[in-house]
Every structure is written in C-alpha cells, then in structure tokens.
Design a protein around this nucleic acid. Sequence first.
DNA 1: TATAATAATGACTAACTGGTCATTTTGTCA
DNA 2: TGACAAAATGACCAGTTAGTCATTATTATA
Lengths: 275, 275
Amino acid sequence: MSKKQLIMEKSLDLFARQGFEATSVQQITSYCGISKGAFYLAFKSKDELIIALIDHFMKQITMDIDYTVRNTNKADTLYYFYHTLFTAFLKHSKFAKLLMKEQTQPLNEELLSKMRYYDNLVDQSILAMVEKTYGHKIEPIKYDLVYTIKGLMNSYSTLFLFNTLVLNVELVSKSLVEKTNILANHMSVPFITTDLIKSFKNEVEDMSKESLAELLSQSIEELDESIEKESLLILKEQLLMESYSLAIVKGMLENIRNHPDCKWISYLLRKYFQL
Amino acid sequence: MSKKQLIMEKSLDLFARQGFEATSVQQITSYCGISKGAFYLAFKSKDELIIALIDHFMKQITMDIDYTVRNTNKADTLYYFYHTLFTAFLKHSKFAKLLMKEQTQPLNEELLSKMRYYDNLVDQSILAMVEKTYGHKIEPIKYDLVYTIKGLMNSYSTLFLFNTLVLNVELVSKSLVEKTNILANHMSVPFITTDLIKSFKNEVEDMSKESLAELLSQSIEELDESIEKESLLILKEQLLMESYSLAIVKGMLENIRNHPDCKWISYLLRKYFQL
DNA sequence: TATAATAATGACTAACTGGTCATTTTGTCA
DNA sequence: TGACAAAATGACCAGTTAGTCATTATTATA
C-alpha cells in the first residue's frame, strides 16, 4: 500500500471520530507510524489531504448514484436509488461521518466549491430520478420533492451513523420509497418553487479569477503531455487575458470534456464563462 | 449590560460565522473590547461559554415549543408547532447556526449530555403533538413520524440558515403541515418502530458517577441557601455512598422538581438512579 | 480624603499547531 | 563493496492556543 493510501485510510479514522480541525498532523503521523516529513512528502498540506479524501469518496458515491438512476427501469429507480445511497454510506461509514461533520463549515474556498459541486451532482441525479419516476405531472412540486428527499436521506443517515444500529438497508429503502411516493402523489403546497430555486442558486458567487487560475495550474501540473494538457494551458491563457475568445474557450472545454481528472475544473470554468 | 451578556452576544456572532473551535478567546475579547482577564472573570473557561449559550437559548426554544404544543387546539397544533420553531430559529438565527455546526461534534461529556437532554425535550414535544393530533390510530408509525418531522425541520432550517433567503414562515409551516398530514394518513411502512427505538435509546451510556458528582457540586455552588440546595447536598452524599436510600433520593428529587436551575441535574440524576 | 473592596488589565506560561529542511537511512544499481 | 539516488526522519521554526496572576485602575464606603 502506498504512503498516500495509508495516510488516507488512517486519517479518515481519526477525522470521523474527532473531526478535521481537532485532528493534528502529529496525531495522524504517529497513528500511521510514520514521520512528519513522510506526511508532507505525500501531501502538500493538511488541507490537501481532506480534499483528496472528499474527492476519492464523492467521485465513487456520485458515480454509483448516477449509474443507478440511469440504468434501472422506471418502477425500480426510486428503490435502487435509496438502496445504493445507504449501501454506499454503510460501506464508507467513516467517510460519511466526516462528511456530515464538515459539511456545515468548509475551511477554504476550494473545499466549499468542491462540496457544492458534488452536492449539485447529487441534486441533478435526484431531479432526474424524480422526473423519470413521476413524469411531467410532478413539475410544480419537483424541486420541493428533491429537497424533501435530501432531508429524509440526511436524517435517516445521521440516525444510523451516530447510533450503533444495525441498518436494514432494504427496509429503510422501502420505507423511504413509500414516503416519497405518498408525498409525490398528494403534495399540493410546495415550499420550494422554481422561482425560489432561482433566487438563491444564482447568488452563489463564482470563484475568483485568481484562485481559478491557481487550480488550473495545479491540474496542468498533474497531467501528462496530451491534448487535454494543452487545452488546459490555452484555457489558462484565455482566462488571464483581458478579452478572451468564447469560441476557443468552448472548443478547449470540449477537448477536456471526457477526461476524468478534468471534470471539476471543467465544471468551474463552464460556470465562470457562463457556458 | 453585564459582562457575561456582552460576551455571550458578541461571541455568538463569531461562533455562528466561524464555528466554536475556530474562534479564539483572544478574538472574542478584542471583539468585545475587553481584556483577556475580564473574560475569565465572567467564564471559567471557553467551554463554559458555549454551554451557557446553549443553555440560554435551548431553554427558551424548548419552552416555547412545549408551551405551543400544550396550549393550542388539536386542529392547529401542528401548524403552530412549525410556526413557533421557525420563528424561533429566525429570531435566534445566529444561535441556530451555531447549533447546526456543533451538534455533530460536541467537545466534552457535559455538552454531549446537554445536547441529548434538549434533543429529548424536543422529541417529547413532537411525540405529544403527534399523539394529540392523530390519536391512537397513529400508534404503529408514531416514532417514524417523529423522526420524519425532525428530518424535515432540519433540512428546511438548513436551507434558510445557510442561504440568504427571505423565509416565509407561514408558507413553510403550511407546507410542512401538509407533508406531515399526508404522511400520517398514508404511511404503512415505518422504518423506526417501537422496538428499534428501544434498541438504541437504551444504549446511551450514563454519565459516570464522578462527573455527575462534579456537576452536582457546581449546581450546589450556584444556588443560594434553600431547601433545594440542601436537597442537592444530600443527593451528592447519597450518590457517593456505597449503598444509597432510594426513598431519600426520590424525596430529594421531588424537592428540586420545580426549581428552574435544577431541571437538568434532576434529569441526569433520575436517569442515573433509574427513576 | 483615606481605606478597603472590587474590577480590569495584559504580559506571561506551557503546550500545541502546521510546516520545513539538513541530516540520516534505505534501496538499487555496477 | 562502493557510489549514487530516493525515502524517511525528527529537531526545529514561527505562530497560535487556553488559561494565569501580579499589578493597576476604579468604585464604594467611612
């Protein structure tokens, strides 16, 4: 096992128990049986460690959910969505705990942005699921239903994450499917409407040009020579220019579209250039 | 305004923005315009400050909720419950933020215990409300409904606490009333049953005899000479004895029953002596 | 005005923080 | 075995932390 993996596994243990801030690098290294220097050979900073953890697990979880929502037939989607989610949380329960503890107070702009990105991915999956399951009749209440689903997920997750409770994934999924169906079929007074969503989704301020450029540089460093790397270089150039060419930007974004390590930066850039 | 009040108000500001751990005493004192010494004249420690804050606000909020549930007619209880809750969270939004941030990682045994105590009070109010509103027909699903209500509360609260969103208390209450009614009337597959509640409510380990005695001493110090103070002294004596008299313990607990400053310690003792 | 009591100060401590880097250990070739 | 490179070390740094306490300032009382 690589040092990086070792540190990630062991630190997750401590973070889940004590939280990120309350865990010192000292503690992590002695728990791993390595020196402080070794830690900083694997990760540039303590912050980079938690970001690596969040990326690692959230990539998996969001991809699982997305796959499930796309590849189940209409009648079963809801059930398998909940099932996938709770199975993932059960499998990665330490990470889930860390996520619950840290989601209210992300420490820096990058983490905050990342959290929102993954949150958005989940939102999109849930929305797609709701539309697939209930069709257009759900239209006026769909956003409220999405939020209700997230609320239920969250509260039942907390329940088993922070109490020693043998979770029956089948039962909790069945129970939540029923609740969702009941609400979808009877709700008439949504709180979260399309307008409301607009009013606060827009206000999420973009990342600054500077930190975006910083992240681009990082991504560029991490990539091997390739079309993608060249595209990122050009994107950085365009970003820092007084006036950029939308055509070039769009083309370059298209180039990196399918590279797994560019998904996040591509999401951020598309938001920045409003594409 | 007393120093204590000043510190509580100003620190709440900082805690809500940055979290408890991330806020230093230094920062609090300079924000208050006082010296570090003055802070430690008002509070024994930084921990005591957050406990004072939680006590202050949770007492108010839980009492408001309890009063509402008791003093509204059957048909309106649900609505006024949500209304009271969201109004309280809106009024004390800084505290609510603090609560959301800290509830997953209480720093010490006392805080953890206190959180659970107030959580229990809210649970009891919600349960009473559910029973009052729906009568005995709700029996098989009442615990699940309580948990669902808490989940909805939590997620809609988070929504307006962490997004600049003008909360329409009437609308959100109306919407949640509808959701609650729909679920109460149609749900048939509860996840949280009476058995499940038993299985994890019991496992909450009691406070140790030592820390209980410690808290008793604190309460005793804070009280003026009175029947209550004497009763607490006797309770402490009994607690530390090899074999105590249940009769005396029960009598003494009865003595402190109605004193507002003894509610928590009385709750802890009753749990300890299993009364 | 003099005295006693109370309130407030901020320099100080000891412990801990994330992070660095000269030095040493280990592994890998010839 | 010797030479080189890569991996790992931990003493060290500058900064921050919660908390203390001798000293000073303020207020109330006589």
